[in-house]
Design a binder for these strands. Structure first.
Lengths: 264, 264
DNA sequence: ACGTAACTGA
DNA sequence: TCAGTTACGT
C-alpha cells in the first residue's frame, strides 16, 4: 500500500512541467526514503534525477518498494486538473496496476480523484557517483534561464567557462558571437540573487543549448540553480526543492573539434 | 574608433522594433552629429529616417564618419538579449568589419557583448527637402495606431482629410465603409492627449494602410505622433525621440482613379 | 510573450 | 507545392 500526501500540490505540478519536455515515459520509484525518478531523455543524451524525500510529505506511507511506470504527458494532463493550492495525494494498492491521484481543494469543498493505468517501462537505473567538481556556480535560476534563452537565438551550443572572477557563457552562430559574463557577487541583499563561484580549477566546457533550455523549465522550483562542472564529466544542473529534495539534470559536454570556440 | 554609450538601452530596442518590419538591411551612419539611418522599405515604397543626436548619448565618440551595414533582424535578435534597464554601448574599431554591442546590467554584475559582421549595402542617400505642408496634425500616437488598425480590418487604404475642425480617416471595403473623425482638441489636461491641427489649406490624401500600420510600430517611442500632409508630397509620420531626435516615415499618396473614395 | 495564421520565397 | 518567415491575435 502506497499513500503519499503532499500539501503543496503545486510543487508536483511544477516538477512535471519541468521534466515532461525531456522525458516521455518514466518509472517513479517509491521507497521508505522517498519518491524518486531517474530517466534519460528520449534521445538518450541527458539524464534527469528527481528526489522528493519522505519527510517533505505530510503523510508518507510506502509498505514496500514500488516502481510505477507512467507517461509524463498523461500525469501532466491530470495535474492540470489540480488547483495550485490543492493538496495532492497519490495512492496505489499492492499489486494494483493503477495509481490514483487525489486533489483536495484547500476548503475541502472539492475532491477529485483520477485513476491512471501504470505502464511497463524498462529502464536501467544508473548509479551516479558523487564526484568532485572543478567548479560549482550558484546563480539565480531566472538569470541562467535568460542567458540560455538569449544565447540560443545566436547559436546552438554554449561554452561555459569558469574562472575565479566569474562565469562566462559564450556562443557563436551565423550572425556573430555572444559572450555573457556574470561576475561573482555575494554582496547583494538577497542571498537568492547572489552569484557564487567555488572553483578548484578553471574549466571550460561546451554544451548543446537545446538541452540547457529544457533544464531551465525547472526554474519555477527554485530561485537559484547550481551548475557543477568538471572536464570529462557531465555537467550537473541542480534545482533544489525546498524541504524535500532536488531535481538534477546531467548533460555530457560536447567534444570540441574546433578549439577556437573556447577562446575569449 | 566608434564608441556610443546609451544609458537608456530600451530606446534602441524600441527603435529597432519600430523599423525592422519595414526594412531588412540598412546602413547606419555615424558622424560627429549623431547616429542616423535612412532606408527604403523592401518594396521601395516607404522611407524611414532615424536620427539619434550625439548629445543624447552618455558618451559619444566618433573619430570619423562611418557607415555600417547591418541586417536589422540580426540587430533585433541581439538587442532581445539586452535587458530593458541595460546600458548599451556600440563599438567599432577603425577599419574593422565588425561591430560590437555591449550590454551592462544596471548592477554591473552581468556584462554581455555581441559581435556582428558588417555587411556591404548599397543605398542611395536621398536628400529630403524641408517642405511646407498644407496641414500638420499632432495627436496621441496610441490613438493614431488604434485608428489605423481598426480601419485596416475594413479596407486596404485610408483617406486622411484635414479641415480646420478636425482630421478624418476614412476607408471602404467589401463589407462597408468607415470614417473616424478626430476633432481638434487642445483643452485636455495632458498635452500628450491633445489633438492639434495646423492647417493652411484643406487636404485629402489616400495611403496604403499596410504601411501606416507598420509606422505605428514606433508608437512606444513617443506618446504623440505628427502627421504632415501636402497634396503631391509624401506624408511624413514622425515620432519624436525624447532628448535625442526622431524617427520619420515617408509614404507617397496613392493616386485615386476613383475619386468617390474621398467623399464624406 | 506565445501560438497561430497568412504570406512569400525556394 | 512546401517550408520558412513574419505579422497578428490571444
Amino acid at each position: 500500500m502506497l499513500e503519499l500526501r503532499l500539501v503543496q500540490g503545486s510543487l508536483l505540478k511544477k516538477v512535471m512541467e519541468a521534466i515532461k519536455d525531456l522525458v516521455t515515459d518514466a518509472n517513479f520509484d517509491c521507497s521508505a526514503t522517498g519518491f524518486s525518478l531517474q530517466a534519460m531523455d528520449s534521445s538518450h543524451v541527458a539524464l534527469v534525477s528527481l528526489l522528493l524525500r519522505s519527510e517533505g510529505f505530510e503523510h508518507y506511507r510506502c509498505d514496500r518498494n514500488l516502481s510505477m511506470g507512467m507517461n509524463l504527458n498523461n500525469i501532466s494532463k491530470m495535474l492540470k486538473c489540480a488547483g495550485n493550492d490543492d493538496i495532492i495525494t497519490l495512492k496505489a494498492d499492492d499489486g494494483s496496476d493503477t495509481v490514483t491521484f487525489m486533489f483536495e481543494s484547500p476548503t475541502q469543498d472539492k475532491i477529485a480523484d483520477f485513476e491512471m493505468k501504470l505502464m511497463d517501462i524498462e529502464s536501467e537505473h544508473l548509479g551516479i557517483p558523487e564526484a568532485e567538481y572543478h567548479a560549482i556556480v550558484r546563480m539565480p535560476s531566472s538569470e541562467f534561464a535568460r542567458i540560455c534563452k538569449d544565447l540560443s537565438s545566436i547559436g546552438d551550443t554554449v561554452v561555459i567557462s569558469v574562472t575565479k572572477e566569474g562565469v562566462k557563457f559564450s556562443t557563436r552562430g551565423d550572425i556573430g558571437t555572444a559572450n555573457v559574463v556574470c561576475r561573482q557577487n555575494t554582496t547583494v541583499d538577497k542571498p537568492e540573487e547572489a552569484t557564487i563561484i567555488e572553483m578548484n580549477e578553471p574549466v571550460s566546457l561546451t554544451f548543446a543549448l537545446r538541452y540547457m533550455n529544457s533544464f531551465t523549465k525547472a526554474s519555477p522550483l527554485s530561485s537559484t540553480v547550481t551548475i557543477s562542472l568538471s572536464s570529462e564529466l557531465p555537467v550537473v544542473v541542480e534545482y533544489k526543492i525546498a524541504e524535500m529534495g532536488y531535481i538534477r539534470f546531467y548533460l555530457a559536454p560536447k567534444i570540441e573539434e574546433d578549439e577556437e570556440d573556447n577562446n575569449s
